[in-house]
């Protein structure tokens, strides 16, 4: 009987313990609050999904224990476990985020270093290329300058040689150096008296003279006819003109170019000597070949 009573008391006590549970468990509420914060955190959701799931499972266990009226100690314990698992999820996420930053920074550094090396290499290559180009250009310039110098030297040598040859040739032709330039005087003796025809004796000389013109196509000359003062000045002018023409024709017949020559009759003007003596008059009857000073610069010497 006593035992039955005791049993009843015990049963009642147990039931009383069950029904006198508070409406809420503050630890569980706190744990849920923390879990919700973590769950709303995109970083945690992304970087620690597994850890968050464990916290969620533990929270469910705590809620379950609470719903089933398990002892407060059990609910509190599971709530504590939930809160700790939330912390684990959060710390894991933050740790992984930091690691990602570190890895990213390292990658960025590597990229920067690589870019730097590449830039340096490019610069070096460019400088090398530029210097090679510059060397090549300088070499080419030197070669060009050398060639030009040689050419100039050759030209100088050539024109020196040509000028010397021409001078020799002109001297050989009895050209006289005067203030008007080199002048060849063809005397009266080469012409029939009073005629414009060249005597055969002068033919050899004309060939040599033509040769000098042909060898130096830049050589130009003016063929000027002169007479003494005997006779009318008109007749003298015509005679001097005809003789100059004869000489020019003779040279052209030998192959001298027309543009190397021009001619004019000077008549009795510009006598070379006095017309009072026979010797003087003979000297005045002449054809002068005046080499144009600018036909060859060297001649101006």
């Amino acid at each position: 009987m006593t035992t039955r009573l005791l049993t009843l008391i015990a049963l009642t006590a147990t039931l009383a313990a069950c029904t006198s549970m508070p409406e809420r468990n503050s630890d569980l509420d706190r744990a849920r609050g923390r879990f919700n914060v973590a769950q709303r955190d995109a970083q945690v959701e992304t970087l620690a999904p597994e850890e968050l799931k464990q916290a969620s499972t533990t929270l469910d266990q705590a809620q379950n224990a609470w719903d089933k009226g398990q002892p407060k100690a059990t609910v509190d314990h599971l709530s504590y476990m939930t809160a700790q698992r939330v912390i684990i999820a959060q710390e894991t996420a933050s740790s992984r985020a930091s690691q990602a930053i570190t890895a990213g920074a390292a990658a960025e550094r590597d990229k920067l270093r690589l870019a730097q090396r590449t830039a340096e290499a490019d610069l070096a290559r460019q400088q090398l290329a530029a210097s090679e180009q510059s060397n090549a250009r300088k070499t080419a310039e030197l070669a060009q300058a050398d060639a030009t110098a040689k050419q100039n030297q050759a030209r100088v040598d050539y024109s020196d040689a040509r000028a010397q040859a021409l001078e020799l040739a002109l001297k050989d032709l009895n050209a006289k150096k005067t203030e008007r330039g080199f002048v060849i005087t063809l005397g009266d003796v080469l012409f029939d008296s009073g005629q414009d025809r060249l005597l055969p004796e002068g033919a050899g000389y004309m060939v040599r003279l033509a040769e000098a013109f042909k060898r130096n196509t830049s050589l130009k000359a003016s063929i000027e006819g002169y007479t003494d003062s005997v006779g009318t000045s008109t007749a003298n002018a015509e005679l001097s003109d005809r003789r100059a023409k004869t000489v020019m024709a003779a040279l052209m017949s030998q192959g001298v170019l027309a543009d190397q020559l021009n001619m004019r009759g000077m008549g009795e003007n510009y006598p070379a000597a006095s017309n009072d003596t026979a010797a003087g008059r003979q000297m005045n009857r002449r054809v002068e070949i005046v080499f144009t000073p600018n036909s060859d610069v060297i001649l101006a010497r």
Binding site: E91, T92, S95, S98, Q99, A105, R109
Partner: peptide, 19 residues
């Protein structure tokens, strides 16, 4: 995990400084 998080955070700061 907390120690690891602190360490990772320090490392991240250092690497950012280095960069």
């Amino acid at each position: 995990i907390h120690a690891e998080s602190v360490r990772s955070s320090k490392a991240a700061l250092e690497s950012q400084d280095a960069a």
